[in-house]
Each structure stands twice: as structure tokens, then as C-alpha cells.
Amino acid sequence: MSKRIDVKDLNVYYTNFLAVEDVNIEIEAKSVTAFIGPSGCGKSTFLRTLNRMHEVIPGGRVEGEVLLDGDNLYESGVDPVTVRSQIGMVFQRPNPFPTMSIRDNVLAGVKLNSKKISRSDAEDLVEKSLRGANLWNEVKDRLDKPGSGLSGGQQQRLCIARTIAVKPQVILMDEPCSALDPISTLAIEDLINELKNEFTVVIVTHNMQQAARVSDKTAFFNIAGTGKPGKLIEYAETATIFSNPTVKATEDYVSGRFG
């Protein structure tokens, strides 16, 4: 239930603006990889190319290859919908569907696609996904209440439950804790540690302690100046990035001596 990702010579554009240039990276299956770097260096942009969400934005296009266990996502004939059902995504702001109950939010991937599912299978899937997101005990008594009535941290875990309910191979998270309080952040970090037993996890974060706490490997992105493309500067074991980086810019950034 998890696959590796290899990115080869990837350039990412918004219409004619080159936002991310020439990324090469290998992400292992069942690992947690953190993307760090200053704002605007293209972490979110790059992350969204990994499940073809980038092209949803008008003018968004890429050059290069992203291989999911060897299969290029950008080969002609690949359906982005299939890609996204294998590579799920959790967004910066929790975004449960406001018209749906907690239960229906978890089942959204099934129900929105009008897939047939028996009542008992649905119940099992809801419980398993909510347990997987460490949310079951908090919401099991109010599954029929709207998802928007939960706290921010609970909503974000609901979004994670919704993502794991479609059984993806990879889960991408774009600053999943940046809108949350410290307690909820800890809950999500614990969850990420458990998720990596089953999934390949890629997380963008602004918080370097968080990267150090949750990730196996860390990729540092940087940008030479406004209007310049973002680049992958250094990619290594998290311990190496934080204690013994090879590039000066990485050292400056992780030690807070940046800019």
C-alpha cells in the first residue's frame, strides 16, 4: 500500500513563469519526507505536481517526469483522476465539505464517485479511517453532525481520514499544521509517525522543529530572488540536513541565519 516517487528534471511553470526549476529527487516508499525552505520558493507548487493538482490552476504546466513506482504520471494517456486517487493530498487550511456530515466527509471519496458500498463496509471504512486519523474516539458519538462543527485540529484530522479512506499509495501534506494550535499540531505529528507504516508521506512545513521531529529525509528548497525560479538545494537524511549540511545556504536556513 505504498509506492516510491522519482522525479526527473522537473520544471514547473505558471503560464510562462518558471516557478520551480530542474528538480531531481527520489522519495522512498513508507518514509516521511519534509520539504522546507523560505516562502515563495515553490514548495507548494512542486508538491502539487506530484499528484497532478498543479494543472488545475489555469496556465499550470510541467516539463519532465514524475515516476510512481516507475510509471510516469505525465505520460500522455494518463488520467489525472487515477493519479489523484493513488496520491492523496491534505491542504493547508482544513477544508471538510460543509454540506456533509462527519461520516459523509470520510466517505466522500466513495460517495462522490457513486461507488457501490454496502452499509456495513461503509461503517467499517468510516471507523477504520477515523481510527487511522486518531479521531475516532472524539467523534464516534456524533458521526451524523456536520464536519464544520469540529475544531480546526479535528477538521484537519477529518481531512486526513477522508484522504486515507480512498486508500492512496502516497499522502501529500501542504503545511497541514500551519493553521492549528500547538496541541493539535502534536496530534497531527503523532499521526504522521503512524501513517508512515502504511503510506509514503510528503510534508511541506515552515516549522523546522516539526521537520526534524517527523521526517526521515528533508529537502531544502531555495530561491535566488523574486521572479527567479525555486530550486532544490539539498536533499539528505534529516539528521544530516540539520546537523551537518553540505551547502552553506542550507546551514544558514536551518540555523536561522537566513537573509
Binding site: M53, V81, F91, R93, F97, G109, L112, N113, T163, V166
Partner: peptide
Amino acid sequence: ELREAAYALGVRKWRTIAKV
């Protein structure tokens, strides 16, 4: 965000429009 949330679950555009 709601459209993107549905897309990210592997839901097609017309279903996203009709159901979200």
C-alpha cells in the same frame, strides 16, 4: 478549496460540480 479537496480524492470534474 472545496473543488480542490474533491479533485484530490480522485473525483472527476463533473461529479465535483454536481455533488460538491
